[in-house]
Design a protein around this nucleic acid. Structure first.
Length: 481
RNA sequence: CGGGGCGUGGCUCAGCCUGGUAGAGCACCUGGUUCGGGACCAGGGGGUCGGAGGUUCAAAUCCUCUCGCCCCGACCA
């Protein structure tokens, strides 16, 4: 394995992260063709490359959702106002962000419909109809859909008026079961985000101030972006009986007694594409974790003369045969671009491994692989490709996670007093872990003075960064997206 | 929603202050030479200057309104 020479400035038209992170982000998303602005305020088009990425994420998360006993279903996009308005805290939380449908054709509707900002209301309505007996429980339903929130300020993937997500909605006979379900979802989210997206997360409950409108308790996964700001990577809510009481979701228990169900809801969104971008990306562009990358390896053929061209392309055919069913492979045999141009483009798009095949490689019966994450080069004999390329992808996946974890650890500090916390955020970003006893007033003060919010109180305290004693309760504060 | 900035071929921008025939680079098309880190030459196509109204003989340029995007804050996934 050899390192290449310094090649840090190939993509000269991409703003450096250190110059202007926000600008870098916008440029990467568009140059990598993940998404583009749509002619609709606050909305974006997810382009084929970005959507392929989402489909991979969807598949991997959907597998986990189904493996834990949930089924997919689909509920309407439109929700009658009267239904949404039933749960006061819920509607109050969403009211400013709701889009309304007021007309059907030319006729004004008697009751307006909201475009779902989330589906608790309509799903609860149906649950009240479907659930009669303890034998009907638990109900474990998930829905993949779009939702709309009339955001005032939008950013590609991070905050758009319309976004895609999955929302799980479950109903249970007991509070214990609902709590167990809440943590179950949190755990498969964590597994998905850390294993497939290579993003390390802190998981734990939110404070009262930060929780979902209408929930008893909200748990979140928090990821740290390269600019030191935190981003919520998923949420799981224990809704208790709030919605059940409002929507009259009851069942008869084994003793024949009427009870309200206990509910949960949990969601993860296309925002994670923004997280992937900001956690792994560098000044050359995206770095996609192999497990979700639409293209895991790209073949770039190289030749000078016609004779070389035919020999190279013949060899490329054999490489394709060896790898086609093993990895998601793209052979970039476009005539109009030079190899160097292709290197830059695929680096921008975050393809984890590049396979260069030129006359020298053909002579060697091997291909030259180059990793996106560290540019390490390695010549791989044709016969070894089927083994080595998947192994290489696994190494890249691991390296991305380790790099993100290292960055997070370096950007997580401990502080105890308001003064210390203020001093920290005056100078830098990242997480600050604070010994915590649910001091709501202190939380508000920290937010007021530093702009940092309580991200979560990690469940696995003590050993998570070596910052606290085992079992010590720490709250994580950070400026956040 | 507050404060600031920007809208001119697909992209990045000049032109606006001081009104007078819409420009450059990149991208795109054709032909040729090229191809191991964003190739080169020659020729070519493409813009009612975000939108609406106004001032004027004349508006990309001045005025009013409006829409969108970006940055910083408040809110959110």
């Amino acid at each position: 394995m050899t390192e290449t020479k310094d090649t840090s400035h190939f993509v000269e038209d991409l703003t450096d992260q250190s110059d202007d992170f926000s600008r870098w982000y916008n440029e990467v998303v568009r140059k990598a063709q993940l998404a583009d602005y749509a002619p609709v305020r606050g909305c974006m088009v997810i382009r084929p490359y970005g959507f392929a990425l989402w489909e991979n994420m969807q598949r991997l998360l959907d597998e986990r959702i189904k493996a834990t006993g949930h089924q997919n279903a689909y509920f309407p996009l439109l929700i009658p106002e009267s239904l949404l308005a039933l749960e006061a805290e819920h509607v109050e939380g969403f009211a400013p962000q709701v889009a309304w449908v007021t007309h059907g054709g030319d006729e004004k509707l008697e009751e307006r419909y909201c475009v779902r900002p989330t589906s608790e209301a309509i799903i609860c309505k149906m649950y009240s109809r479907w659930i009669e007996s303890y034998r009907d429980l638990p109900v474990l339903i998930n829905q993949w859909c779009n939702v709309m929130r009339w955001e005032k300020v939008t950013r590609l993937f991070l905050r758009t008026a319309e976004f895609l997500w999955q929302e799980g909605h479950t109903a249970h006979a007991t509070a214990e079961e609902a709590q167990k379900e809440t943590l179950l979802a949190l755990e498969f989210y964590r597994d998905f985000v850390e294993r497939d997206l290579a993003i390390p997360v802190f998981c734990g409950p939110k404070s009262e101030a930060e929780k979902f409108p209408g929930a008893d308790m909200t748990y979140s996964l928090e990821a740290l972006m390269r600019d030191g700001k935190a981003l919520q990577a998923g949420t799981s809510h224990n809704l208790g009986q709030h919605f059940a009481k409002v929507f009259d979701i009851t069942f008869q228990d084994e003793q024949g007694k009427r009870q309200f169900v206990y509910q949960t809801s949990w969601g993860m969104t296309t925002r994670m594409i923004g997280a992937l971008t900001m956690v792994h990306g560098d000044d050359q562009g995206l770095k996609l974790p192999p497990r979700v990358a639409p293209i895991q390896a790209v073949v770039v053929p190289i030749w000078r003369k016609e004779a070389e061209k035919s020999a190279v392309l013949e060899f490329v055919g054999r490489v394709r045969a060896a790898l086609d069913r093993v990895v998601r492979l793209y052979v970039d045999d476009r005539d109009q671009y030079t190899p160097g141009w292709k290197y830059n483009e695929h680096e921008m798009r975050g393809v984890p491994v590049r396979l260069e095949i030129g006359p020298r490689d053909v002579a060697n019966g091997a291909v030259m692989s180059v990793r996106r994450d560290n540019r390490a080069k390695e010549s791989i004999p044709l016969g070894a490709l089927g083994q080595r390329v998947p192994a290489l992808l696994a190494e890249v996946q691991q390296a991305l996670f380790r790099s993100a974890l290292e960055f997070r650890d370096q950007n997580t500090a401990r502080a105890s007093t308001l003064a210390e916390i203020e001093a920290h955020f005056a100078e830098r970003r990242g997480y600050v872990a604070v010994p915590w006893k649910d001091e709501a007033a202190l939380e508000a003060q920290i937010k007021e003075r530093t702009g940092a919010t309580l991200r979560c109180v990690p469940l696995a305290t003590g050993n998570f960064t070596g910052l606290g004693a085992d079992g010590e309760r720490l709250a994580l504060f950070a400026r956040a997206y």
